[in-house]
Amino acid sequence: MLAFMIRRIFQSIIVMIVVALISFLLFRFVGDPVNQMVGIETTPEQREALRVQLGLNDPVLTQFWRFIWGAAQFDFGISYQFKQSVAEMIGKRAPATLELSLMSAIFAMLVGIPMGVYTGLKRDSWLSKFFLTFSLVGISLPTFLIGILLIYVFAVQFQVLPSFGRGEVVQVGFWSTGLLTASGLKALILPSITLGLFQMTLIMRLVRSEMLEVMRTDYIKFARARGLSRKAVNFGHALKNTLVPVITITGLQLGSVIAFAIITETVFSWPGMGLLFLQSVQNVDIPIMAAYLMLIGFLFVVINLIVDLLYVAVDPRIRVTGLAQ
């Protein structure tokens, strides 16, 4: 188990170095950041001075080493546009995005898994058919449209939920949370649903097809023949066997939810990293973009690591192969 973890962490570090290389190279070639930062009347000497100050004249390898060394200490330099520490800016906005993503993932699982189980067990009931049709809508409607629809219904028509912002936030150490106030929680509802709807329908359909598969297996038949209660068969034996693919997909989706929260954040004016990233793209603010890329890469790596560990917890057969390798 320990060897397995060490190996996985080692792999993760390699992945992160590759991500760093890509984000470093990518943004070296998007144009001269100096042009973006200075006015027309800046003299060539001033430009050159700025270059030296930013270290843009150093050899590429030196710059890359500086980038990696900084990144390892959560130092991504100073934003060209805002003249602030990038790490600090992202640190301020990350809690908003992470809370939103987490809530939407929880929403997707809490609603998607039971719906998937239900539609898998009662294939022919009209409610299952309704869920399936509804999930088609969830999969095919674009996120921004769902967001706008929700705003129209709940914020404009019924005026029960806020249409923008995080509501009141409470500062817990460096983390600003909206989970502790009523208005913060209320503000989370619509964006979480908007962001999580696609994931929810995906999870529902996945759980459904896995349930259909598992219910046909011999061990379910045998569990029934042993006289186990319906609950024990459906949830103890069947559902647990559907979990490995569900964990995989949910984990990977959580990564994409964080990375693609941008649209939802734009629709709901959510003060998260997505908005910051959009602004930095407009301003060619390379340190922010690079840091964002690194952060998303890091989150994916961490999530995958957790997913691997969960496999081991769920399926004993993986435990053996993991150890044997």
Binding site: Y219, V314, D315
Partner: peptide
């Protein structure tokens, strides 16, 4: 049942 290889739940 016929097949003991698949009659037992692999996760328990």
């Amino acid at each position: 049942f016929q097949d003991p290889l698949t009659s037992l739940n692999p996760l328990y």
